[in-house]
Design a protein around this nucleic acid. Structure first.
Lengths: 219, 219
DNA sequence: ACCTGAACACCGTTCAAGT
DNA sequence: ACCTGAACACCGTTCAAGT
């Protein structure tokens, strides 16, 4: 067995690399928000000169694209053994769950104007499952689009409706009124309350059921 | 008739005001992208000192919140005369149409962590229509959440799938491969193609039909 | 091949001064 | 009440220099 010349043994602990940089960036965004992600602050976090990261990531825009990749990678690949309904459900659930794991970064998932490779891998797997089940590729693609739209849209709406998850209903109302102008009519506060005051997990799953059963019926 | 002391006649042409600032900001974003929106550049556009805008808008974050308001304001209020299905459909269609009118700004609609007053007004109107039709408030709210999620999510997925609308299929493939790494396996390119190669308007409406008819059946 | 730091152009915002 | 401009701390990135 020959030594791989591309992976020399002399790596220092804490050496820079694209994955290490992206992970640090995501940690930063998770902790302090997207606006805290700065090439300079990121370098600080890695205890490295501000310019060193540029050897592994091609500037800030590429860094954000890289974060989108990282996010898509965290969405679990559906299990090909399961029936296709289960695969699609797991996929949608996982897409929404990501919003709770990374609320500050979630906007990057569909906000960079690209579907990075990990996204296409997961979509491709789901397409395959549906074709396996006998659906045409066009039909399969439509179904996937619907599910991604519903799951990601639902998650973004959640994040917009209640930025900070509130324990008590009172705390919730306080939080809602804080975002609205002081002179907001009472009926608007009531509307805001209606949008949040429910079991989000349950409601998400009900909608998912409706879409999946509707689609099954239309086949 | 007395002169209104609050609206003196000595207003100069081109005077600054919050609406005028927000409109200029949206124009800037539409033309040159969100990253081009700068307090300084915005002031340039208005031919004004960089600091003058701060008299009407409370900093950049507030400016972006203001843009979100502007976007929600462009979504048409449903016509209370119509049956509720038609109102909901028009609402969803209008939410998606906004993405085509303002692709560079669309991320702000659900990306600011708040639902501004104009959003709550539109949601409130839709809630009212559904309660008029006999639905409970909870049921109505669930329905609205589904529609917003689907419409906005679909639009964001569209923007992610094909940043620049392409006339010819060839142009489309070129555009797709440009965003993917050079060594992207052919099957990923194929997946990307499947996500875009369809009549987006038609597909959106089909999904909308499915949701609306599914909901009607479940009542 | 990777890291460093000085330098540049630009950014958001504070503040004291004008009218 | 609104506008101005100097000033400050910070930002992304280029580039020449190191190892």
């Amino acid at each position: 067995m020959i030594v791989n010349a591309e992976a020399p043994a002399r790596r220092r602990r804490g050496e820079l690399s694209r994955p290490r940089i992206l992970e640090a960036a995501l940690r930063l965004v998770d902790q302090d928000g997207l606006e805290a992600l700065t090439m300079r602050r990121l370098a600080d976090e890695l205890k490295v000169d501000p310019m060193s990261t540029y050897n592994h990531v091609d500037g800030k825009e590429a860094l954000l694209d890289g974060l989108a990749e990282l996010l898509w990678n965290e969405i679990e690949e559906p299990d090909p053994q399961e029936p296709w309904q289960g695969q699609l459900r797991a996929f949608a659930v996982s897409m929404r769950a990501l919003a709770h794991a990374h609320p500050n970064a979630y906007g990057l998932l569909l906000g960079r104007g690209i579907l990075p490779a990990p996204a296409l891998e997961r979509i491709g797997a789901a397409l395959g499952a549906l074709e396996q089940a006998g659906l045409s590729r066009e039909r399969a693609a439509q179904l996937i689009r619907m599910l991604i739209a519903y799951a990601a849209g639902y998650a973004m709406l959640e994040l917009s409706s209640a930025p900070a998850p509130c324990a008590t209903p009172l705390e919730l109302i306080v939080s809602l009124t804080r975002t609205l102008p002081k002179d907001a009519p009472a009926h608007l506060v009531e509307v805001a309350q209606s949008m949040v005051d429910c079991d989000m997990d349950l409601q998400f799953n009900l909608g998912l059921d409706l879409i999946l059963s509707g689609l099954q019926a239309s086949l």
